[in-house]
Design a binder for these strands. Structure first.
Lengths: 347, 347
DNA sequence: TTGATTTGTTGGAACGTTCCATTTAATAGA
DNA sequence: TCTATTAAATGGAACGTTCCAACAAATCAA
């Protein structure tokens, strides 16, 4: 089991009694080779335990078959699903996606991107870490490497983005809440250093305005995008003089936190306080009560991103259209039935 | 922004007015170069927008800085956490882990492994897909590439394994159930093509035997390792003449399914039927009721696996000790208080 | 028979690095 | 002054592949 010096194409050639060029052609599945010769070569390949050296090959071809996907938080099932969607597409195109995690750390992201480029990837799909500086992708753009963003958008960047329609999703959810008879609404969680945050909050605000909710009857509480953050948001809201009766949460995780906090106060999510989430992760439907949430089809977005990338690679361009994915509100039990009249304040 | 031919070390040399060897030395941070020269070179590197070609370098060095981690199911937060643990360790060792997902598909796994090897990884950490054939790793072993398994073990393989103490975990959980006064116990979920299954089931069986539960009072129901599987298991169990009053589940996901199914029948998990899970994923503590589960410290196992791999690479060996990680039972609310006497059957 | 064509195979240069052996320049020792 | 030593920089071969141009053998057209 000692690791003898790795077998190369030349070893195969010697073993099979042909030239290295012939071996190379066999490896590429060329039909210029006589079937019997090919067979002989393939046997030799097995015998010497050869592994193809793609690094050496890329030296000549300058066209690799791997693309890098850089994910900001792999432990978030939402991103994991997206990654899986992409894999499906790439697999059938014969290209291999390597995934790297940045854990929301811009420094780590820098390292990972550098490594991926050095490895000679054909393209990059990135869900940028929070706090990424606008210049972080300059080198990649300079190198003319295809790159697309998913889920998140950078403030001023010309890089194509594949993301859900956050604005519309928030609008729909808010309208649903108002339709249920709520007058005092809150937007919970998220922080303003994320473009996504502004998109969702914008949808919330516009829906409120369009449907006649006064600005003073809306409450916005920033917070971590986690269960913990949700708990904190609710506590903050209930410390107010006139607390809201319903909340749109930045995220399903926040929504779960809010529901937990409600229970802790002896309130029943749905009946006593309406909550809607965003993302519609798998757990949403299994929760008690099942969470009403804005579904964004993360796997579908992943597939779309992969297709865009494929096209960019084929047409050797670094440009592509943005793609805003459709969203839809999945109504479950966390907003209860229509709110009884006479409980709200003046309208 | 057109992609001009990629800059090489020679372009830098020309730009800086030195030889390619000098540039190479600067890139490697050698102290054989006069600081001023190094500075000049580094400036040239910036100017020409150079990206290092690791493939070309590896052609000479035959020692890369990337290792591959092959995961059977990235959407399972349990594995995602493990991956993150590994990343922490590798990062500080200057090694970049590339993650690939196999989605429990042995064919996909084959492809992914091949690709990773071709890419010239320094080592492989694999959580094998279900149904992996014993010979799947022969080529890798033949190539003398360090490899370690995590979480799962292959029937007859000499490859080192880093995994939790499944047997002990199941034993503890079962003893807990029996200590609560249950006499008819079930083991729910999982399938016998997994070594892990036998380990956990073995722990369950031994605990039952050691603590005086007759074999005929135990029920084993195989099933998918998902919520859906859990639901199915419970239905099956309740179709029996004398259904069990408590269950050890293969997996937290199965446990969640079981609790869901109980609720659907109007039964309260904990009070009416005790359930304990395995893995202790983050959601376990947030569920209603909070799930009692066997914690396996997935991130810790990930770190351990990474350390083992590092050592193997350094000492150029392909051998290492197995490592069985400690487990502990986290008691929460899903087993209720001690069971009232007189409800069970004869003992 | 001869030359043209087709089929199958081959040598060699090139890709972008590393690293050894060597050269050149600067400094020290006598 | 000359030689020995050290410091800094360099040229060239090698790594494992691809691919072009060239070649040999077999087949065909005349």
């Amino acid at each position: 089991m000692a690791s003898r010096p790795k077998a190369t194409i030349l070893d195969i050639a010697r073993e099979a009694g042909v030239s290295k060029s012939t071996v190379s052609l066999v490896l590429q599945g060329s039909d210029l080779i006589r079937p019997e010769t090919a067979l002989k070569v393939r046997k030799a390949i097995e015998d010497v335990g050869y592994v193809y050296n793609r690094g050496a090959a890329n030296l000549r071809k300058a066209h690799s078959n791997v693309i890098g996907m850089v994910i900001n938080d792999l432990t978030n099932p939402f991103f994991a699903e997206m990654a899986v969607g992409m894999e499906r597409v790439f697999q059938s195109a014969g290209i291999v996606p390597f995934i790297a995690n940045t854990a929301e750390n811009p420094v780590r992201q820098e390292e990972v991107l550098k490594s991926l480029m050095e490895q000679g990837v054909a393209g990059l799909i990135v869900s940028p870490a929070r706090g990424t500086t606008p210049g972080a992708f300059r080198r990649i753009e300079m190198a003319g490497l295809p790159i697309v963003f998913t889920m998140r958008r950078l403030p001023e960047s010309r890089i194509p983005v594949i993301a859900p329609d956050n604005h519309r999703g928030a609008w729909l959810a808010t309208a649903h809440l108002i339709g249920k008879g709520h007058h005092r609404l809150a937007f919970f969680g998220g922080s303003s250093d994320l473009v996504v945050y502004h998109e969702r909050l914008g949808g919330f605000r516009e829906a409120c305005e369009a449907l006649g909710i006064a600005k003073r009857d809306t409450l916005v509480v920033e917070g971590e995008t986690s269960r913990k953050g949700g708990i904190a948001c609710l506590e903050t809201a209930f410390a107010m003089a006139e607390p809201p009766t319903a909340a749109l949460c930045f995220n399903d995780a926040v929504a779960f936190g809010v529901m937990l906090a409600l229970r802790k106060r002896g309130l029943e999510p749905g009946a006593d306080f309406a909550v809607v989430g965003f993302d519609d992760v798998i757990e949403a439907q299994h929760y008690m009560p099942a969470l009403t949430s804005v579904a964004v089809d993360s796997a579908g977005l992943g597939e779309r991103a992969a297709h865009v990338m494929l096209r960019m690679i084929q047409s050797r361009t670094t440009r592509a259209e943005d793609h805003i994915g459709a969203v839809n509100l999945v109504v479950r039990d966390s907003c209860g039935p229509h709110r009884r009249a006479g409980m709200g304040d003046a309208a």
